[in-house]
Design a protein around this nucleic acid. Structure first.
Lengths: 328, 328
DNA sequence: TTGTAAGCGTTATCAC
DNA sequence: GTGATAACGCTTACAA
């Protein structure tokens, strides 16, 4: 596993390392003849330049970290694809860091940024405090994407409050009055403001929130299933349900059916994110769709701007309510 | 974004860079007094050692690449968690590389390995040829995990042929005779041998394969839905269905229901991978479960062995058939 | 216990 | 067009 180096290539080709380096970097000032000779030696010896040397010299790695909680997620898949697409266009490579919301793991990846191993990071979820994020984003090239913890550092997202409002307002406008909420109580801003949007939609339509039909679990199917089942068994009445994730909405639908009720006739259900869970559910879920690929592309564009020394403007992209048969 | 370096810390602390380096690496040969002084200066100036320097010097990065097609996948999530867990135990960090089965992107990540940016790679899917994989695994520390393209290079997997056999045999033993196959025709060995297992199970039970109820799509829900719907509409008759992915199985179940048939009474369905799609389906899917976390842990152990100069033995882990209500 | 200095594999600045 | 050579930030003999 010991590799051939630039200086060995140089002597084999009978030129200086400087010339080999020029060939490597496509510098025009090298004659076609020497260039070909060097290239053929490289070929023959299977030369792969050691990037550690280059990186140390240039103090750049052209590597981007994408930091997120978990990869088991159709949503972030498309966002990352957008990031990677835009990154490659500009000569960068993307590396995904999965933190599982573990502080130690997360900071080990953040350290990679601090230690010069990557030129920048796009943070899709973090358990950092607002202050830590602020300090970090001040010193390093960081953009928050989709989820964010500090509003004073660059971010790209949708208007989660308005999106939730739109979903709930749609339920009300289509005749529902008792609308349950199935969410997650955690550190995420999106969880929080989606709840705010739910409350605002109720109030603006003259409905007082009823805490007995507001439940919190984790993002999972089973959690939502159990919560919904339990509430119905305990006599909770609702004719609509808004959930902050498709998976939870899907769990709710299953639970509703298991209790002999029908979706959408008895309960109309709206999910969030337009993931595959939305159309795997029967009936397929009405859901809020985020412009996933675009979120990634725009986040990467912001990061590139940051590299140029600019302070990128925050971006709020358009969401969309996708109507399917879980509502009518 | 210009960082303070070891030599600046050294002069600020009034010691040599060697001493600072010793503090950094917790070398015991430095007096408590100097150590504290150096540490406080580091603290004060927010020093983060530039790993590019260290890596160049040591020719090690303690970074592991995990190469896979797409992250939108509950299966690989757990495998990667297993890899990361074992990696961290041994002082390594994991970076996920998403290739989308794009040759150029894949080789850009493979180049990272060749160029010294990572100490090793665990490849969970690849569109490399058997020969290329062989050459690569010969020169670099590489372990194939779950999916593999070269049987002469280290791999960790389950017995996909036997797993498919077991699933289909279970269907037959529970009284089904006309068993449809819903798979994917691609480069993956797992796709191929799962099909082989299906055929063997039929033949060993005295059933001749019927090509009119063998269909291929992609791994998606919709693809399987359309295929199944179409075949039923065209008059295909089957009382069992085996699919190589839960998502496809889920699509098949929906299509079967849409045609007025019942699962499992009219058609019993078995999926593969025991992902969330399996229990989001109604009825929940009988499915083949792979020991996901363990696959990751064992792959990482093999990689660690490779680092020690050993040729790690190939490992075939145990699968399990999880019985749920899509069969009876 | 600490310091000096060589060296890891590149790139980039000068000369020529 | 090409070659010497310094430098990037760190680790590690070897000396003291």
């Amino acid at each position: 596993m010991v590799e051939i180096t630039i200086s060995e290539i140089a002597s084999l080709a009978g030129v200086s390392v400087a010339t080999v380096s020029r060939v490597l970097n496509d510098s025009s000032t090298v004659s076609e003849r020497t260039k070909q000779k060097v290239l053929s030696i490289m070929e023959e010896y299977n030369y792969a330049p050691n990037l550690l040397g280059r990186h140390l010299r240039t103090q750049k790695t052209r590597l981007i970290l994408v930091i997120l909680t978990t990869i088991s997620n159709y949503f972030c898949n498309r966002v990352v694809a957008g990031i990677d697409e835009e990154a490659r266009k500009n000569g960068y490579q993307t590396l995904i860091c999965m933190t599982n919301d573990n502080a130690q793991i997360e900071s080990s990846y953040i350290d990679m940024l601090k230690n010069g191993l990557a030129d920048g990071a796009i943070i899709m979820s973090s358990i950092m405090s607002k202050e830590d994020m602020h300090t970090l984003a001040n010193r390093y090239s960081v953009v928050q994407c989709s989820e964010y913890v500090d509003t004073d550092s660059p971010y790209v997202t949708i208007d989660n409050e308005q999106a939730a409002y739109d979903a709930v307002d749609y339920l009300i406008k289509s005749g529902r009055r008792r609308i349950a909420y199935c969410g997650v109580r955690n550190h995420m801003i999106s969880s929080k403001v989606r709840f705010d949007g739910y409350i605002r939609a109720l109030r603006e339509n003259g409905i007082e929130p009823d805490w007995s039909i507001i439940f919190d679990g984790d993002y999972g199917f089973r959690s939502a299933y159990r919560l919904t089942e339990e509430h119905i068994k305990n006599g909770a009445k609702f004719d609509g349900l808004f959930s902050i994730s498709d998976r939870m909405a899907s769990g709710a639908v299953s639970a509703i059916h298991s209790q002999g009720l029908n979706v959408p006739d008895d309960v109309a259900v709206v999910g969030f994110d337009n993931t595959d869970a939305a159309y795997m559910t029967n009936p397929p879920l009405t859901t809020v769709s985020q412009p996933r690929r675009e979120l990634g592309v725009e986040a990467m564009k912001s990061l590139l701007a940051r590299f140029e020394g600019e302070i990128p403007e925050n971006k709020v992209l358009k969401h969309e309510l996708i109507i399917r048969n879980s509502t009518n």
